[in-house]
Write a protein that binds this DNA or RNA. Structure first.
Length: 583
DNA sequence: ATAGCTCCTG
DNA sequence: CAGGAGCTAT
């Protein structure tokens, strides 16, 4: 592969460009083998392995595909783990896929096309030796990141179901209400611990319990596989160490997991070796992977929101499809747990109290009639029987659930996630979110987009539409900047450096008006820097008369394309889009 | 051959 | 913001 192609690699399209409205969504989204992480743990028709749970089959296949991909990537890499290895550690995977300054050669973002005429000999960003390895790492990072987000998404969905279930039961049974209505893990433990206790007439609780176990199992299995293969890939030495304890990948014993945890720096990025991840801690690898990756999450995001007024706090996207204000405490707890605060993430506590869930391999849930028990329907029923104060967005999200789509013969693609709220169309909330994301990234890769719009079922149309959005954003952005650059020139500005975009400047207001209409998001300072630089570049170019060249903007685009920064993790939150909508 | 970009238009 | 044309790199 050519050196510069790194991030953009994962593509799997086979039909010409599409507008934003597809006549019909392709039935099998099944991200082809070229695509990195499939958005769903379900890819492939999965008819073999009939003794396995459908989920498990799908996941297995998915895993095999992923493994194959990883291995092929590795083969393509010149093996010597360069010093970059430390840099390409998993940390980067969950952090900065692009560092400022573009010192990562493999991070070839969209290379703005070199002008057909102007720029002459295309000057690439000299990606050289080792770039293929780094590129491979980069891909792995993105894959991991993406997969991890999927897991997180599932996790969130799962707890939403638990919450609604729990709320309903407390009402029905008139249970003595404790000060705190019970944390998620409490419910979980109750569910998975006591065998048939909660099973009631409706059958829903038991279904949820079974689902809980299945989910936990699947998540842990998948995560283990992925982490394992990545480790194998990047640190062959560590691999040999690990394999001693870790022969049968799917089921990890507690010891193995502990060892695995202590496995060292490889995982450090996933979970900072602090309190909750102390070597002796019982957190399973998957737990730490999740919590760790979430760790740097909403804090920074929350900080990004302006703090005028108490109300602002509610603007921090919380759990999607929240069931209203009925259980604010639970939700905030849930949120903080998902973010890895406190030593017990839901999953961690689960593996502590009932590690058996992992070890026994819980075959029981495998017999669950998945077709009949849908998360969605359980939520819906909940809503009917116990109408909770639903925000419009929540209603919307429910309304958009693929309820009546049965006509499609729903193939593999949407087995679980779709049934629990995956959307096949982009909503105004998504648009708003995308606009805010523009403050951080002007040139998001499709992979990145998939990572941040977890609640949408990606298809080529969706991808194209999102890309088109950002293209439109850029267009507006550049037009505005150019306008102000020319204006400055006319006003007699001489030194480009004096052109700085502040929050007071008109340019900023124009931009802010478009991307942040309600002005309820505090635009990151970094964006101001980027805007300033763009302004200066335009100014200088125009002043130098470069605008005579039809493609005079390309070099500027190229510069700006390197200035993308990380998007706060909070934007990945499931309900982010909806929350933003009425903020 | 095509994904993704810009440019232009409505 | 979407659609389409045209271009480029892969």
């Amino acid at each position: 592969r050519a050196p510069g192609a790194g991030l953009r690699a994962p593509r799997s399209r086979d039909c010409p460009r599409l507008g934003h409205r597809c006549p019909r969504p392709e039935p099998s989204l099944a991200f082809s083998r070229t695509h990195a992480p499939a958005p769903l743990p379900c890819a492939g028709g999965g008819d073999q392995l009939s003794n396995q749970h459908p989920w498990e089959q799908l996941c297995d296949q998915h895993l095999r595909a992923k493994r194959a991909r990883v291995e092929s990537i590795i083969q393509g890499m010149s093996l010597p783990p360069t010093p970059q290895a430390s840099d390409t550690s998993l940390e980067a995977a969950f952090g900065h896929e692009r560092e400022r300054g573009g010192e990562m050669p493999q991070e070839s973002k969209r290379k703005p096309r070199v002008p057909q005429q102007g720029m002459g000999a295309a000057r690439r960003v000299a990606p050289t030796a080792g770039s293929s390895h780094a590129k491979g790492c980069q891909q792995l990072k993105e894959q991991l990141c993406f997969l991890e987000q999927q897991l997180r998404w599932l996790q969130e969905k799962f707890y939403q179901v638990c919450d609604s279930e729990d709320a309903a039961q407390t009402q029905e049974d008139s249970e003595t209400v404790q000060p705190l209505p019970g944390k998620p893990q409490d419910r979980l433990n109750k569910d998975s611990g006591t065998a048939e206790d909660t099973g009631d007439a409706g059958g829903l609780p038991s279904a949820v319990r079974v689902l809980s176990q299945a989910l936990k199992h699947e998540l842990s299995v998948v995560t283990c596989h992925v982490v394992d293969s990545v480790l194998k890939t990047l640190w062959p030495k560590a691999d040999s160490h690990i394999q001693k304890q870790h022969h049968s990948p799917p089921m990890l014993g507690p010891d193995a997991r502990r060892e695995y945890s202590a496995g060292g720096k490889c995982r450090k990025p996933l979970a900072k070796p602090s309190a909750m991840n102390a070597p002796g801690s019982l957190g399973s690898p998957e737990t730490e992977a999740l919590t760790g990756a979430l760790g740097k999450s909403l804090g920074s995001y929350a900080a990004s929101f302006s703090s005028k007024g108490v109300r602002k706090s509610s603007r921090v996207p919380s759990m999607g499809y929240s069931l209203g204000s009925a259980m604010p405490v639970q939700h905030s707890q849930l949120l903080s747990q998902l973010l890895g605060h406190g030593q017990h993430s839901p999953w961690g506590s689960d593996s502590r109290e009932s590690p058996s869930a992992l070890e026994r391999g819980c075959p029981e849930p495998l017999k669950l009639p998945w077709g009949s028990v849908k998360l969605r329907s359980s939520i819906a029923r909940q809503q009917q029987h116990h109408p909770l104060p639903l925000s419009p967005a929540s209603m919307e999200s429910l309304a958009l659930l693929p309820a009546g789509r049965d006509g499609h013969g729903e193939s593999l693609g949407n087995a679980l996630p779709l049934s629990s709220g995956m959307q096949e169309a982009l909503t105004p909330g998504h648009l708003k979110k995308a606009k805010l994301m523009f403050f951080f990234t002007r040139y998001p890769s499709s992979t990145l987009l998939k990572t941040y719009f977890l609640d949408v079922q990606f298809s080529r149309c969706i991808t194209s539409q999102l890309i088109k959005w950002f293209s439109n954003f850029r267009e507006f952005y550049y037009i505005q900047v150019e306008k102000f650059a020319r204006q400055a020139l006319l006003e007699g500005v001489v030194d480009a450096c004096t052109l700085q975009v502040s929050r007071d400047s008109e340019l900023f207001r124009a931009l802010n008006m478009h991307y942040n209409k309600g002005n309820d998001f505090e635009v990151p300072g970094r964006f101001l820097e980027v805007a300033s630089l763009t302004l200066q570049e335009f100014f200088s170019a125009v002043r130098a008369g470069k605008d005579a060249d039809p493609s005079w903007k390309k070099p500027i685009y190229k510069i700006i394309s390197k200035l993308d920064s990380d998007i706060p993790e909070g934007f990945k939150a499931a309900g982010c889009s909806q929350e933003l909508l009425h903020s």
